[in-house]
Simulated scan of single mutants.
Amino acid sequence: MTAWAGPLTRETLYPWHVPLFFFLSGYFWSENRTLTSEVRSRAKSLLLPYLFWLIVIAAWSIAQLDVIGPSTFSRLLLGGSRLTGPFAAFWFVTALFVAAVLLRAVQRFPLWMQWAAGLVALAVTYAHSNLVAKIPLAAGVACACLVFVLAGRAFKKLRSRVKRPLLTGCLLLLGSACAIVADWSSYLDLKNAKLGVPGVTVVVAVAICAGMVLVAETLVPLAGPRFAAGVTMLARCGLLVVLTHALVLVILMQWGAAPWLVFAGSLVVPWLAAALVLRTPLSPLLLGTPRAGKPRSVRTDPLSTRT
């Protein structure tokens, strides 16, 4: 997996690329949904595509094996950090599901209790990362990631007070970059419950997410409605990319493709496929989002248009 795990991608992408999705889930959070409707909605938008692609890629993966044992199927059922190779990013989907449902379950309690729960989970993860990473379906990591969802929700409430969003966003990104270059912070490996420098790395990740939101909200509208529509379309395709890019990566590596081609292909191929699927009746099953052109409700999930 060197195309995705090299020093450049590790230092430039890993400090923020997964926390951003949790942060955006909080940023687009709807306060008036019930726990039952949260579970139902997230199951349709996250777990249904997860199960579909798990079965499809498992069939391909098992066909490549010379020996099949009980551990092969136990890894598929337990998920989380046990899934590697073509399943490398599957942990994220179950973690996002658990984090969203967990926040919905605790949002009736005072805000300080919600943050206390997230911070305790964060502390436990720092202290016992190996144990947390082994919890099935990345549920342990999801508890720690509750902090990112809470941060996104809190930032949404503060957003109207930011008078110069572009400048503020750039300063947040610049400050975060300086912290990383100065080695005050490190990258995150949330799949394996590695949270970098205690406290600092999480704060830097949140700052990057907030900065990106401010910059995007300022610049995307300036690019015109067509560009904004394109960004929305790519966002609706995101879940398929998450679930299938590692499969494309593995196949290209088996073919002996150059690292740059592996990196580019593992992005371009899934996104093109997702853009095509989005226009078919298979979109809810494969993408977790309604077919393009169908009426849809306000988006509260960075990987789905379902609420």
Rank of each mutant, 00 (worst) to 15 (best):
T2D: 11
A5R: 08
L8V: 09
R10Y: 04
R10N: 02
H17A: 00
H17P: 02
V18K: 00
V18G: 02
P19A: 05
F22D: 02
S25H: 00
Y27T: 10
F28Y: 12
F28E: 04
W29M: 00
S30W: 04
S30K: 08
E31A: 15
N32H: 13
N32C: 04
N32P: 06
E38P: 04
E38A: 08
E38Y: 00
A43G: 14
S45R: 09
S45D: 04
L48N: 03
P49Q: 06
Y50L: 06
W53S: 15
L54R: 11
I55D: 01
I55G: 11
V56S: 03
I57D: 01
A59K: 03
A59F: 13
S61W: 14
D66H: 14
D66R: 14
F73Q: 10
R75H: 12
L76K: 09
G80T: 05
T84S: 14
P86M: 07
F92N: 08
V93H: 03
V93C: 08
V93P: 00
A95N: 00
V98K: 05
V98T: 07
A99D: 01
A99C: 01
A99R: 09
L102A: 03
A105R: 02
A105Q: 02
A105D: 09
V106P: 05
W112L: 13
W115P: 01
A117Q: 11
G118V: 05
L119R: 07
L122K: 03
A123E: 00
V124G: 01
V124H: 07
A127D: 03
L131H: 12
V132I: 14
A133V: 13
K134H: 12
K134V: 01
P136Q: 09
L137M: 04
A151N: 02
A151P: 12
A151M: 03
G152A: 09
R153A: 05
A154Q: 04
F155T: 08
K157S: 07
R159P: 08
R159M: 06
R161H: 14
R164Y: 10
L167D: 10
T168R: 09
T168G: 07
L173Y: 01
L173M: 12
L174G: 15
G175T: 06
A177V: 04
C178V: 10
A179C: 13
A179H: 07
I180G: 02
V181W: 15
A182T: 12
S185W: 03
Y187M: 13
L190M: 12
N192C: 09
L195H: 03
L195C: 11
G196N: 12
P198R: 04
P198H: 07
V200R: 13
V200S: 07
V204F: 08
V204S: 12
A205M: 04
C209M: 06
C209R: 06
G211S: 11
V213T: 02
V215H: 05
V215G: 01
G224W: 11
R226E: 15
L234S: 01
A235W: 04
C237W: 04
L243Q: 10
H245L: 02
A246N: 10
A246Q: 09
V250P: 03
I251G: 07
W255L: 15
W255M: 14
L261E: 15
V262N: 10
V268W: 01
V268P: 12
A274V: 05
A274R: 00
L287H: 09
G288Y: 01
T289S: 12
T289E: 02
A292W: 13
K294R: 14
K294N: 14
R296G: 06
V298D: 15
D301F: 02
L303S: 06
L303Q: 06
